[in-house]
């Protein structure tokens, strides 16, 4: 064919429609904002109930995760993500969705290789690189402290 791959790539970009930008940005703001506000509401309630701040945010995390799991099971969370995009993926609820969705889907492949392995499909990388990056930063901090810089 006369057209080369580079030119084709540029051409495809030209003819491919994209998401309308502003509506999706607005919806991400709205959904992300609402989820964080609900988180704040939880935390405030627990603090007012006499819990320490750390414990209150742990409770908040748990409640958000549980809500996301239930909404995913009822097939509602995918709709929230479809509407809100990053607004529903960025909060901890998005993480919970990524854990429960494969667990439910791969149940048919068994407890070990189905649920056990696939539950980490998306969560696994998040946990791995989260732990790894904080470990690397810890090593750097440790070395800097040893040299008395920090």
């Amino acid at each position: 064919m006369e057209i080369n791959k580079k030119a084709y790539e540029a051409y495809v970009k030209e003819v491919t429609p994209v998401h309308k930008r502003w509506p999706s940005i607005f919806r991400a703001f709205l959904v992300g904002g609402i989820i964080c506000t609900l988180g704040q509401l939880c935390t405030s309630l627990f603090i007012n109930g006499g819990f320490e701040k750390e414990v209150a945010s742990a409770w908040t995390t748990l409640i958000l995760i549980a809500s996301s799991v239930i909404l995913t099971g009822l097939n509602i969370y995918p709709k929230i993500v479809k509407f809100g995009g990053a607004g529903a993926l960025v909060p901890i609820t998005g993480f919970a969705n990524s854990v429960v969705a494969p667990a439910v889907e791969f149940k048919s492949e068994g407890q070990i290789f189905g649920i056990g392995c696939k539950i980490f499909t998306i969560a696994g990388p998040v946990i791995l690189y989260g732990i790894l990056s904080s470990w690397i930063l810890g090593v750097i901090a440790y070395v800097l402290m040893a040299f008395g810089i920090l």
């Binding site: 491919t16 429609p17 993500v81 969705a101 494969p102 439910v104 889907e105």
Partner: peptide, 13 residues
Amino acid sequence: RFPLGYGNQRPYS
């Protein structure tokens, strides 16, 4: 792609 319960936004293409 993804498990069905996993949320994502599908591009127009």
